[in-house]
Design a protein around this nucleic acid. Structure first.
Lengths: 311, 311
DNA sequence: CCCTGTCAATGAAACGTTTCATTAGTCGCG
DNA sequence: CGCGACTAATGAAACGTTTCATTGACAGGG
């Protein structure tokens, strides 16, 4: 029978315990467990055996401290339970894990104060990098915070003045395509429900929507656009307002996160889809794919996020 | 004009820089920034000022090392992009953040080797606690790993032999209710599509399903139950198999994660819902709520997870 | 006026690693 | 046989904090 492990309350063995047990020096053990430099096979075996029998587990905090690298990247999104973010997060985690990084996930709830706090926290923790989604791209406090930081920063689905890397879906062409498609079908009153123009997705969609209309020589009715998507229940309210208005739209383009709210409004008003109203969602989700022929903006750049962050 | 920040490549100022600049000792600075022990207001102000002007940010790695506490908990789920997990994760993050903890998120993809690797990693990182979802509750390697660990462990939606805390939805009564409901409606051939019985949710649902049938004096057809939910596309395959079989079910109860697949099968077979087939989903998602009158198993214990982990 | 107790601040010793400059040992070669 | 070149292993000095045992100063009580 192999000897039993020390009882649970025993302090974790350190590298010096291993060194003592194997009768070698600290440095040697270090080189063995990092398997980099030359060490004689016989020694290596002895050390390994000692480590195993002691149940030695290297202490990452100590390593980070010495190496000045935590092998962690921070991720800040507004809300992970948002399915779109969830897949981005998941993909990012995967890529990072593959290169030996871990990911600390935080929800900002789109609150600027929380965002600042999180960014500072990331700095305290000395993460190797951070991937962030901002609620607004022009908040001076936050921009200053970011620019003063020394770590690698990647903006996710956002874009700003600072020379920062950005990874984003191609919102513009997705929306352009959707709007054109509806215009070609003869729709003349098209609703747009999305997020604030202070963030890339909303801005890109707004521009694409306008561009498509202009090209088709169709005027736009400002009452048919809503950029409140970050607010709770925004999809519902926006759609409801449009649909009960004097001249309701014949089609609505909605962000994936707003679509459930829009559908709720449509249902409560007992409007038949697609007979009286066409719906297109930007960004693929289960909701969309199970409902109508949806438009899906591909989401494969997600991999790029991880790659960029792993640089 | 305030003096500019040192150029980016300058090394981060440490606590000794602050001490020197303020003309006080290390210990004093430490006590100031931890704002615990007594220090004269005048000193405190001097130190704070020095810290501010230097742009000092405490180094968490060094703190963790000294304090033997990382203020991080590890979270391992099979896949964050799963909407159900996403909300649990989100709620957990919130609770943890409130107590000054951060959360490292990992995807196990339900692969036992990955699970082992992640658990070991958590130990290396010396996290203060971990919250894990296991693919099987009886894997000896993993159980040994968990039991040998000294950190706080909470099982999420899982339950095992070890004396570990568990936080889970009440799968049993949810499923019981659903099955009864259908039986009361006169259904006699009810399909069940869920995950493996080696994990709590699948097991509880299987038991509830059987119990309801027994109580109603209705026999169960084993070909109408599928416990493969962890496999990709399981919902689709299971439903397809049942529906094209000699004696197809008149109702199907499916886990929320399997439901999209089930719907896909139903649609591809052009079966009308709810005329020819009733569907009930266990666990609420957008998909469900937009489709039929769904059964929702409440998800508020999520808060408990965070609380338990924060102990 | 001296002793003792309290309050503030100091200095040094941890914490568990990595790394760098040394030392000891081995070998080939003139 | 002695010398330089190489390889393996050692020992000590970091890394940036917290904490603990001291020290100094000051006041109150006998």
């Amino acid at each position: 029978m192999p000897r039993k492990q020390a009882t649970s309350s025993a302090p974790r063995p350190t590298i010096v315990d291993v060194a003592r047990k194997a009768g070698v020096s600290l440095g040697t053990v270090s080189r063995v467990i990092n398997e980099k430099e030359s060490v004689r096979p016989q020694m290596r075996e002895r050390v390994l055996e000692a480590a195993r029998s002691l149940g030695y587990v290297p202490n990452f905090a100590a390593q980070s401290m010495r190496r000045q690298s935590t092998k962690v990247v921070g991720l800040m999104v507004s809300d992970v339970s948002n399915p779109l973010f969830a897949s981005e997060v998941s993909a990012t985690e995967e890529v990072l894990a593959r290169s030996g990084y871990n990911m600390v996930l935080t929800n900002s709830r789109d609150r600027p104060e929380t965002e600042s706090a999180i960014i500072t926290l990331f700095q305290r923790r000395r993460f190797d990098g951070m991937i962030v989604t901002l609620s607004r791209e022009d908040d001076p406090t936050i921009l200053k915070l970011l620019s003063s930081s020394t770590m690698a920063i990647v903006l996710l689905e956002r874009e700003c003045k600072l020379p920062l890397d950005t990874v984003a879906t191609d919102h513009y062409s997705g929306s352009l395509q959707a709007t054109r498609y509806l215009l070609d079908l003869g729709h003349r009153r098209i609703g747009l429900v999305t997020v604030t123009q202070a963030a890339l997705p909303g801005r890109a969609r707004g521009l694409a929507y306008a561009a498509a209309h202009k090209k088709a020589g169709v005027g736009v009715d400002p009452s048919l656009t809503s950029f409140d998507g970050f607010l709770p229940d925004a999809g519902y309210h926006a759609a409801y307002r449009m649909l009960v208005g004097p001249k309701p739209p014949t089609a609505i383009i909605a962000g994936a996160n707003q679509m459930p709210g829009v559908l709720k409004a449509v249902r409560s008003l007992k409007i038949s889809v697609p007979r009286r109203l066409s719906l297109i969602t930007i960004g693929d989700t289960d909701v969309a794919s199970l409902h109508q022929p949806p438009l899906t903006a591909v989401r494969w750049e997600l991999q790029k996020v991880g790659a960029a962050a792993a640089e």
